[in-house]
Structure formats: structure tokens, C-alpha cells
């Protein structure tokens, strides 16, 4: 199952093809479940989010072509946003240790990698140009859905300070990515 297969499956799903939907689920649910778990740190909530994510995929598959993004990026964006909505709606007591144990047990498989190696290298290189704590803040916001308030607490600075320096970091990142 590579990127063009997933691309094809989404276009079949847009036509209401349930078999394609089933295959798309088999091919991508583990990654999307991982994305939801990373944000939510809670298996039951992540399952709910996975369910909601695939319902959105079924409903909005016809919008995929217009986004111009890679199919995995599109799917991950839906899963991530759904998970963050859930995170913001309910303040959860996370069972972090439990999930981290299991996540540590298996790394991502290279063939399932959503993005070409050169692009990964580029964002990593640009993030490396930021200072350690700013890099960590950007990653925290993306991977865990951390809010400014969460980040301010984590780095022990006022929210406005947090926002000011994260915005500067984002601009620096954008300039680096445009080089």
C-alpha cells in the first residue's frame, strides 16, 4: 500500500465505494489511531476520535482533491484536528505512562512514512535552527495539540511571552523553509 494507492482509495471513497473505505481503514487506521493517541493519551478517547475521523473521511472524501496535499497529510490533519477538538472539549486526566510504554514498543515503519525523506530532512533542519526550547514548543503544539496556556506552563513563562516568541520562531521557520 503506497501513497498512490491511498490516493486512489480516497477517490473511490468519494464516489461512495464502501469496499474502498474498508481498505482505506485497514491501510491507515493504525497511523491515525497513533496520531489521536499522541494528542489524547487515552485509548478510549482515541478510539472515539478514530471513529469520528473516519466518519468525516467518508463524508468529506470529495473535498480531498481540492486541498492539493498528500493523502496521508490530509488524513492526518483530519485526525489531528478531531483529536484536538476532543482534547479542548474535555480536560482529561491522562494515563501517560500507559500509552508511552506501548508507543515506545513500536517505531514508525519506513514504508508507511507519509512524507518524502528530503522534506522531513528540511523541516528537521529548519527546526534545528531554533533554540532547543522553541523547537520543543513547536513540536509540542503540533504533536500533542498543546495550547499557548499549556506551553506557558511547561516553559514557566507568561502566556503573552510564550506567544511572542513562538510567533517569532514560526516566522524564522517559514523563512528557513522558503530558502
Amino acid at each position: 500500500m503506497d501513497i498512490s494507492d491511498i490516493d486512489h482509495l480516497i477517490s473511490r471513497v468519494a464516489l461512495g465505494d464502501r469496499a474502498a473505505f474498508s481498505k482505506l481503514y485497514d491501510a491507515t487506521s493504525a497511523k491515525l489511531f497513533g496520531v489521536a493517541l499522541r494528542v489524547l493519551n487515552n485509548t478510549a478517547s482515541a478510539e472515539d476520535v478514530l471513529q469520528e475521523t473516519f466518519m468525516k473521511i467518508w463524508r468529506y472524501a470529495d473535498r480531498y482533491a481540492s486541498t492539493g496535499n498528500s493523502p496521508m497529510t490530509w488524513l492526518i490533519t483530519i485526525a489531528r484536528n478531531t483529536a484536538i477538538d476532543r482534547l479542548r472539549a474535555t480536560k482529561l486526566t491522562a494515563d501517560i505512562a500507559d500509552v508511552e510504554d506501548r508507543v515506545a514498543a513500536q517505531g514508525p515503519t519506513p514504508e508507511q512514512s507519509a512524507i518524502a525523506g528530503s522534506e522531513v530532512a528540511r523541516i528537521v533542519a529548519c527546526l534545528d535552527e531554533l533554540t532547543e526550547d522553541r523547537r520543543s514548543a513547536v513540536r509540542g503544539a503540533y504533536l500533542e495539540g498543546a495550547s499557548y496556556a499549556d506551553l506557558a506552563t511547561r516553559f514557566d513563562v507568561p502566556i503573552n511571552t510564550m506567544r511572542t516568541w513562538l510567533r517569532r520562531s514560526l516566522i524564522a521557520l517559514r523563512e528557513c523553509m522558503a530558502r
Binding site: 487506521s29 493504525a30 497511523k31 489511531f33 497513533g34 496520531v35 493517541l37 499522541r38 482515541a46 478510539e47 478514530l50 496535499n69 498528500s70 496521508m72 497529510t73 492526518i76 490533519t77 489531528r80 506501548r102 508507543v103 513500536q106 517505531g107 514508525p108 515503519t109 508507511q112 512514512s113 507519509a114 512524507i115 522534506e119 522531513v120 528540511r122 523541516i123 528537521v124 513540536r139 503540533y142 504533536l143
Partner: peptide
């Protein structure tokens, strides 16, 4: 930002 998701491990639901 998409490549950042690469490090997220797959978890079979």
C-alpha cells in the same frame, strides 16, 4: 508541519 507526524508510531486500533 506534516513531516513532524512521521515520528508518530502506528498503533493498531
Amino acid at each position: 508541519f506534516a513531516p513532524l507526524a512521521d515520528e508518530i508510531a502506528e498503533m493498531r486500533p
